[in-house]
Amino acid sequence: MNKGLKLTDILVTIVIAIVFGIVYKLWGPLYYFVKPFGLHVDQLIYGMWFMAATVAFLIIRKAGVAFLAEVAAASGEFLVGSEWGLEVLLYGIIQGLFAELVFMAFRYKRFDVTVVSLAAVGSAIGSIIMDFYKGYIEDLALWNLSLFLGFRIIGSILIAGVSAYLLVKALEKTGVTSLVRPAAQEDYDALDEREHA
């Protein structure tokens, strides 16, 4: 994938992903409990399953992290025994890939809420493509399909976009993110100061 990721980056990404893997696993029951109520209200909370990619990328800010995080979260969810079984793995790959592509399109240089939301939409589109193959969703009545797609995309933006962004902002205040971000040039320059005034 990417040669630039150091062991620290990978391990931190995977551990963040596993935290979300556990959340994903807990989110499952909630999802299928709201699902039978019909009218796709469940789709509003689907975006939770895209959060690992956006959160991990916002924290580490490197190429490959979004993809790795989503795959790792899916693997974690799978390996602790997901009731969705194997499909979570393939969904994870596709969702991670689409989020990664969005971040790549901005050359991994933008970390604002717009780009994060776009990445969330990317993941949503990825998942919808999978659903076309798996769930025959094109065979839903048109009004129902529109509701389904609309809710999923809105939910993704709210959860994996905006909430992820706010969450990482809050996390940055704790100072823990500085562990995984590179030092600034000014810090290196400070080493050469002769005497302190």
Binding site: K6, L7, T8, I10, L11, V12, I14, V15, I16, I18, V19, V55, I59, S163, L166, L167, A170, L171, T174, V176, T177, L179, V180
Partner: peptide, 24 residues
Amino acid sequence: LKSYSIPLLSQSIRRAHRIAVAME
């Protein structure tokens, strides 16, 4: 959501970082 995830994530990030350092 924040009250749960901030301590959980920050603790996990620090731990992951320390493990990576220990592995190297």
